[in-house]
């Protein structure tokens, strides 16, 4: 059974506290509901959620869509945005969780990564060091979402194949974003062959694709 591993990195730094995080949770729930309507996702998709603030937490280890339940996601009152540390953890997780074809083993589909942040990496040195490591992990696509006015989309460009921005951090924006994630995942990676990119569906109005 070939799995489609999808990693979600979610910013839980202090600035996400309150409505933004609540909106993210609602968005995640909507994303799951959407994915559960997609037969390909239901059979193949495995999702992992990693949150990052001062600490990096694997709140959901790679689990099949069929069995997974959304974990509680909390935010400290304040704290830095340690995206670099999160990427380090991500690389470790990918190395242990994602299967590659080898002899008796059948490989997974190429993993997909979504990163959502409302700021910029606080651990900028580590972030810059880790980006090339992430690139080596063979992601079919890395999509970064710069949410809200304080998010620095330029910082995300070296990491991501696609950067999208959300003008506001309200529930409508996040809902649109996660629905779009859901349709990206559903559309992508289906008999991808050697394609190096997934085909992203056109984003909804709230989600701006940065070129």
């Amino acid at each position: 059974m070939r799995r489609l591993p999808v990693y979600l990195l979610i910013d839980t730094s202090g600035s996400m506290k309150g409505e933004p995080l609540e909106s993210v949770k609602v968005g995640l729930q909507a994303m799951l509901s959407g994915l559960r309507q997609d037969p390909h996702a239901l059979e193949s998709l495995h999702l992992s959620i990693i949150t990052f603030d001062r600490d990096v937490k694997v709140v959901l280890p790679l689990s099949s869509l069929e069995t997974l339940q959304l974990p509680p996601i909390v935010c400290p009152d304040s704290g830095p945005t340690n995206l670099g540390a999160a990427l380090e953890v991500l690389c470790q997780r990918v190395d242990t969780e994602v299967l590659k074809s080898q002899g008796e083993n059948k490989g997974d589909w190429k993993p997909i990564l979504f990163v959502m942040t409302d700021g910029s990496p606080s651990d900028i040195m580590l972030y810059k060091e880790t980006v090339p490591q992430v690139k080596k992990r063979g992601f079919a696509s890395i999509i970064a979402c710069a949410a809200g006015p304080k998010a620095k989309k330029d910082e995300l460009l070296p990491l991501a194949d696609h950067v999208v921005t959300l003008d506001t951090m309200d529930s409508g924006s996040f809902l649109s974003f996660f629905r779009w994630v859901s349709s990206s995942v559903a559309a992508g990676n289906v008999s991808m062959g050697a394609s190096t990119e997934i085909h992203l569906p056109p984003p909804p109005p709230e989600v701006n694709l940065v070129f």
Partner: peptide, 11 residues
């Protein structure tokens, strides 16, 4: 001609 991930091949 398989790759390390599923669905990877050459043409």
């Amino acid at each position: 001609d398989g790759g390390e991930f599923a669905g990877q091949t050459i043409f």
